[in-house]
């Protein structure tokens, strides 16, 4: 047995999940489990109670509204990648979902699970921040700019559950990542979104958590071309450095991925 002992409980509704959480001294929610289960296997997490919210059917949906695309927090990456509504409304987001991990990971992993975990190299945080999405939870709505707060840290309270994410529709958007060849996590991933009046650029994989490149946003607002991004010199200060790549290498990758993301957006 790899993990510490725990008590598994399956919730049929959000209300039941919250009740289960409140009745425990040490609980964690489990969605697709593609990060939490490996983390528990390494005993980096050892909750006493594991509350499975993956079967709550109301959390899994894609809905197109006039000015936004709403995706349920329990929607699997594979379903987002294959959704015609997502492909029509924000093709870059369907592309991003189809780039996460590998097919088996995409069959289990969920949007809500990914952003609640806020892995520094996860793909979805770049899409959520890059599009300026709004996260709706059991308690409130949180703007993407306020949601991601640190390494594996978010604005979520321990018992709070993400219900859905609302993505505003950009004029055009693109996502490009340089994946780690083994894990498929982003060494660097860049999401660019052109809203006409404003441009947003979000970077994952490069720093302790996803961040916006405001200098590049200003340059792209004037001219939304790969060349405009190429003129921005990215400082390696504060960027991640590990056995897969130095901070300088990641700084260079940010520009390269930004150019590719813009090229994909203007295609």
């Amino acid at each position: 047995m790899y993990t510490a002992p725990f008590h598994y409980r399956r919730a049929a509704s959000l209300t039941e999940a919250e009740e289960m959480f409140r009745s425990s001294d040490d609980a964690r929610y489990l969605a697709g489990g593609q990060t939490l289960v490996p983390t528990m296997k390494q005993r980096l997490a050892a909750p006493a109670d594991l509350i499975d919210i993956a079967r709550i059917a109301s959390l899994s949906f894609v809905r197109r509204e006039a000015n936004a695309l709403i995706i349920g927090a329990g929607t699997r990456h594979a379903d987002v990648a294959a959704s015609q509504d997502v492909k029509n409304a924000i093709p870059a987001l369907a592309h991003l979902a189809g780039e996460i991990g590998d097919p088996a990971v995409r069959h289990k992993g969920t949007l809500g699970g990914s952003i609640a975990n806020n892995d520094p190299a996860a793909d979805y945080p770049a899409g959520v921040l890059g599009l300026g999405a709004t996260v709706k939870t059991t308690k409130r709505t949180i703007a993407a700019d306020k949601f991601f707060t640190g390494l594996f840290e978010t604005a979520l309270e321990p018992d709070e559950i993400i219900i859905e994410v609302s993505f505003p529709l950009p004029r055009r958007a693109g996502y490009a990542k340089f994946p780690n060849p083994a894990s498929r996590y982003a060494m660097v991933g860049v999401f660019v979104a052109d809203f006409g009046s404003a441009v947003r650029v979000a970077v994952t994989g490069a720093a302790p958590f996803v961040f916006r490149m405001t200098e590049m946003e200003a340059a792209l607002a004037k001219r939304f071309t790969p060349d405009a991004a190429a003129g921005i010199v990215v400082s390696p200060d504060g960027l991640n450095s590990d056995l897969f790549g130095s901070a300088e290498y990641r700084a260079h990758l940010i520009t390269v991925m930004a150019k590719r993301a813009i090229a994909a957006a203007v295609l």
Partner: peptide, 15 residues
């Protein structure tokens, strides 16, 4: 699992 490929080392049997 229900017709979809899944890594069985990354899911508990109870799930």
């Amino acid at each position: 699992v229900n017709g979809r490929a899944v890594k069985s080392c990354t899911i508990f049997a109870v799930q």
